[in-house]
Design a protein around this nucleic acid. Structure first.
Lengths: 139, 139
DNA sequence: ATTATTACTTGCGTTTTGAAAGTTATTGCA
DNA sequence: TGCAATAACTTTCAAAACGCAAGTAATAAT
């Protein structure tokens, strides 16, 4: 149990990594709108500060949740992508979305509803399809 | 969309509430070992500072995730309990535990493994049984 | 009556966050 | 070829949150 982790509890240890207000939002943006560059993350509707974005991206990379690379022919733009470890955060994010849909209903946008309802109706299949979608998304 | 929330995204809004290193740990302690008093929370293996604990408990109460009450015959000890909204955080916590079990395996304690495996084998039934357990836990 | 317990609150130094501006290296365009 | 725009940061600095230690008030136990 190294210095990152408060205890050897699975829940506590996960929260040591993703237990903040920004990490899962970056991952959400990678999963659903398929964002992959610094400036795309920077333009999220939650307006993350650039220094925080920068530190979160390095942290997530260091922890093996995302990869950082380039596309050939472009030396400027960094391409961030989810590792397997990162992709497996999907069920957590989906359960969070469902909880919000059930419990914070008053102020949420409606456009997420069909999405959440589909997830509710068959969670396993929905997740499986999302994983396929991740694989087939054009780069 | 009031001042608490950065956007009207379900995931972002949930993280505005539970997106920190402590809230879900308090809720974990209420769910699994069935903790219900200030001093019990204070003794968790992650050693939360008393001022943080105090502020999280009021925040969670204000947000309708926990209730604060007394038991008859004891004017000293406050009893905290999960509301329905709070209990429904269970699936999120279970998915977090599963993710850790799959991805942080190296440093976790083994005692959680049978628990996580049981969840993996049939998530819906496992969650349903946990909800029943919450109801029947002696006070 | 005294001590212990419970649930805090306060003070204060440290760390993290957040807004804004600045920097460096490409890249697109005239 | 030169210049503006873009991408990805880094720096600065004030404000907020955190975390440790100590203190307090009410109740309960001895």
């Amino acid at each position: 149990m190294n210095k990152h982790f408060r205890s050897n509890c699975p829940i506590s240890s996960a929260l040591d990594i993703i237990g903040d207000k920004w990490s899962l939002l970056i991952i959400r943006d990678m999963m659903f709108p398929g964002k992959k560059t610094y400036s795309e993350f920077s333009n999220s509707s939650e307006k993350i500060a650039t220094n925080i974005l920068s530190s979160r991206l390095s942290m997530l990379e260091e922890l093996g949740i995302i990869n950082k690379g380039k596309e050939e022919g472009n030396k400027k733009t960094n391409i961030y992508s989810l590792t397997q470890k990162g992709k497996e955060l999907l069920p957590i994010i989906l359960e969070i979305a469902q909880w919000s849909d059930n419990n914070l209903n008053d102020h949420l946008k409606d456009s997420a509803k069909p999405f959440v309802n589909k997830f509710k109706s068959n969670k396993d299949e929905f997740a499986k399809n999302m994983y396929l979608f991740f694989e087939n998304r054009k780069r």
